[in-house]
């Protein structure tokens, strides 16, 4: 295949194509207007921990970030690849246990365990989920929901990896600031990275698979292979959250496979707005704070957020971020004429 093909290309064309026409900003006000939401989001996330002084609230923010990771993973898979993954807990569990076992059995420091758990966990999760990738319909949802429950039972029954008691005494982060400023920039990178990815050509293929998988198959693209890459990415995000949690608490146990890690991120995504990628992060923060305020209700909190989730899904609300976006773009102001 050595044929040389040359083509004349205009320099401005690609830019115009990507911006879908001419898009010019002529004033500082215009620049401010278009970049304000993004700036508010970025600065808000980076400043929150400085604004709250109490240790408890800083911990709450960290937990919110962990859920934000899982919510991002869910949103990416569900809205951009069309894979409904109810197995957030599967990712946290696998990531957490890999990290925990490496740290407690082999004494590997957490700087190494977290990356290994992220990649290795993603490989394991992808391998386990691989059989249901060619299937259409509800298989992926069912199987991904079942895996964490089954894995927890298996660990319990076989009494491996510490059994019911889990593995205590793992390495923890030096202090809260490290915990915070490890995960916050990661959230930002991930949010904007994913947003970039779904508009790249690779992401376009994933979105096309969601829209119409048969047409993608007819276009000489192996959809299972692409779905696998997407699941790998999604589970890597989840496994990172799990490994991070393990070192945050200094403990792994079967509660990492708990259903909360599957349901809560979905609720957060639905609250924030499906398909926005920023929405899940904001939703996770709101929902975690809400959940914290309801701390005294104990188990009832789960009831609350299941009901919120069911309600929002059934009423098919767009979520918070699309609503705010709409309002922002409809923003009007008076001018002199």
């Amino acid at each position: 295949m050595d044929e040389k093909i040359r083509r004349r290309e205009r320099l401005d064309r690609g830019i115009k194509v990507r911006t879908e026409g001419i898009y010019a900003i002529s004033s500082w006000r215009g620049i401010a207007y278009t970049s304000l939401p993004t700036a508010a989001f970025v600065l808000g996330l980076l400043i929150i921990p400085l604004a709250v002084t109490s240790m408890t609230w800083q911990k709450i923010i960290i937990i919110a970030c962990v859920f934000a990771f899982l919510a991002l993973s869910f949103d990416f898979l569900a809205h951009f690849v069309g894979i409904v993954c109810l197995g957030g807990a599967f990712f946290t569990g696998v990531g957490g246990y890999i990290s925990g076992v490496l740290n407690s059995a082999f004494g590997v420091p957490l700087v190494i365990t977290i990356p290994i758990a992220t990649i290795g966990g993603a490989v394991i999760c992808t391998l386990f989920l691989l059989p249901c990738l060619p299937m259409r319909g509800i298989y992926f949802a069912i199987v991904s929901l079942m895996y964490p429950l089954l894995f927890a039972r298996v660990i319990q029954a076989l009494d491996i990896f510490g059994g019911t008691d889990g593995l205590p005494g793992l390495a923890t982060f030096p202090n809260t600031w490290v915990e915070l400023y490890l995960i916050l920039p990661m959230i930002l990178i991930l949010t904007f990275g994913l947003r970039r990815l779904v508009n790249e050509d690779f992401g376009i293929v994933l979105r096309a698979i969601k829209d119409n998988d048969q047409a993608v198959r007819a276009s000489n693209i192996n959809i299972t292979w692409y779905k696998m890459k997407a699941v790998f990415l999604g589970s890597a995000i989840g496994c990172f959250a799990g490994a991070y949690l393990a070192h945050l608490y200094g403990w792994v146990g079967i509660s990492l496979f708990a259903l909360d890690f599957s349901i809560f991120p979905i609720a957060a995504t639905v609250v924030g707005g499906v398909g926005t990628l920023v929405g899940p992060v904001i939703g996770a923060i709101i929902l975690t704070m809400f959940s914290e305020m309801l701390r005294e209700f104990g188990p009832l909190r789960v009831v609350f957020y299941s009901l919120i989730l069911a309600g929002l899904v059934i009423l098919n609300t767009g979520g918070l971020v699309p609503y705010l976006q709409r309002k922002y773009y409809q923003f009007e102001h008076w001018i002199e004429i």
Binding site: V17, E20, D201, F202, I204, V205, R207, A208, K210, D211, N212, Q214, A215, V216, S219, N220, I221, N222
Partner: peptide, 19 residues
Amino acid sequence: RPYHSLSAMKNLVVPLYSS
């Protein structure tokens, strides 16, 4: 069977991305 959520031009990115 178009990809409804993509523009016509992005619809063609899919086959152009094929192996």
